[in-house]
Amino acid sequence: NEDLEITKAISDLAPYPSRHRPQMVCPVSKDATEDLQGATNPSKAPALVEQHLLPADQAHVRNQMAKYRVPQRSGDIVMIQSEHTGAIDVLSADLESADLLGDHRRVSPPLMAPPCIWTFAKVKEFKSKLGKEKNSRLVVKRGEVVTIRVPTHPEGKRVCWEFATDDYDIGFGVYFDWTPVTSTDITVQVSDSSEEEDEEEEEEEEIEEPVPVGDVERGSRSSLRGRYGEVMPVYRRDSHRDVQAGSHDYPGEGIYLLKFDNSYSLLRNKTLYFHIYYTS
């Protein structure tokens, strides 16, 4: 009875045709009509074939996506809403200069070329010579880390170092700070431990998960690896037996950090003799 009533209602509308009334078209007859039009109009044939290659859902999605345009000019924005939190992020069209990762995720520094290192046995002659020169000898106290900051020189292409100690070994490593050089003066920084030194270096920066400091005998693992370029990790060197020497080509403008680590020693101070210079 319901089917008969619906059929009757539709038949009652038939005497009043209108060109604006929605037409009920069978999908089969519609496809057949489009095929016939494509055969008679060659210019629309490629579009017709492309539609047949895509499922109906994919074609619908593609048609919807075609309504949106990618931002091209400065000032255009893209708004992205999270499905979980509902938060909305606004991204600028200037993607190259935008900090998309935030301040807490920084780009890692480029890898450093390995240094050239060697030793020579004339320890007594080396210490006797430097003992007479000014600012070539210092004492690294127990539990301390001494950092010698050596800026790159405009006339130089390579930094060189030589050092030795009295009676006991010492930890040594080299890092590179990618920062503009305002002065070519060599400065010395002393901290009570490698952990405190890292805190001083990062006091103006927030670190969510600081990297723990490792054993100097196995190579120090500090937060300096994430901020600075690592030329050579901190290891204990037999500087009381042989003069430790090395060099490294400038990777660019910046400041070398030569670290003498005595943080592992609880009782002994280390007398350090060092010579740092540049070559062209």
Rank of each mutant, 00 (worst) to 15 (best):
K8L: 09
I10P: 04
L13A: 12
A14K: 12
P17C: 09
S18M: 07
P22D: 14
Q23M: 09
Q23E: 08
Q23C: 12
C26L: 14
V28Q: 13
S29C: 15
K30A: 10
A32R: 10
E34D: 13
Q37V: 04
Q37F: 13
A39H: 07
T40Y: 06
P42S: 06
P42W: 00
A45T: 06
A45Y: 04
V49G: 04
V49L: 15
L53R: 11
A59W: 07
H60I: 04
H60D: 05
M65N: 11
K67V: 05
R69A: 15
V70M: 15
Q72E: 13
Q72C: 09
R73W: 13
D76P: 03
V78S: 15
I80F: 12
E83K: 11
G86I: 09
G86Y: 06
I88T: 15
I88M: 09
V90M: 08
V90I: 11
A93V: 05
L95T: 14
L95N: 04
L95G: 09
E96Y: 05
D99C: 14
H104L: 13
P109V: 10
P110V: 04
L111M: 06
L111A: 00
M112T: 09
A113K: 14
I117C: 14
F120E: 08
V123F: 00
K129C: 02
E133F: 03
S136F: 01
R137M: 05
L138N: 06
R142W: 01
V146F: 00
T147R: 04
V150S: 07
V150W: 04
V150R: 06
T152N: 09
E155S: 15
G156D: 07
K157H: 11
V159C: 11
V159D: 03
E162I: 02
G171S: 04
F172E: 00
G173F: 00
V174K: 00
V174P: 01
Y175N: 11
D177T: 08
W178I: 03
T179S: 14
V181W: 01
D185L: 02
I186N: 03
T187W: 00
V188Q: 14
S191M: 01
S191F: 10
E195H: 11
E196C: 10
I207S: 08
E209N: 06
V211S: 12
P212T: 13
V216A: 15
R221Y: 10
R227I: 10
E230G: 12
V231A: 05
P233G: 08
V234L: 02
R236A: 13
R236M: 08
S239G: 03
S239I: 00
H240F: 05
V243T: 09
A245F: 04
G246H: 02
S247T: 09
H248N: 03
H248K: 05
P251G: 01
P251E: 10
E253G: 02
G254E: 11
G254H: 00
L258F: 02
K259S: 13
Y264F: 07
L267D: 15
R268S: 13
I276L: 02
Y277G: 03
Y278A: 10
Y278V: 12
T279H: 02
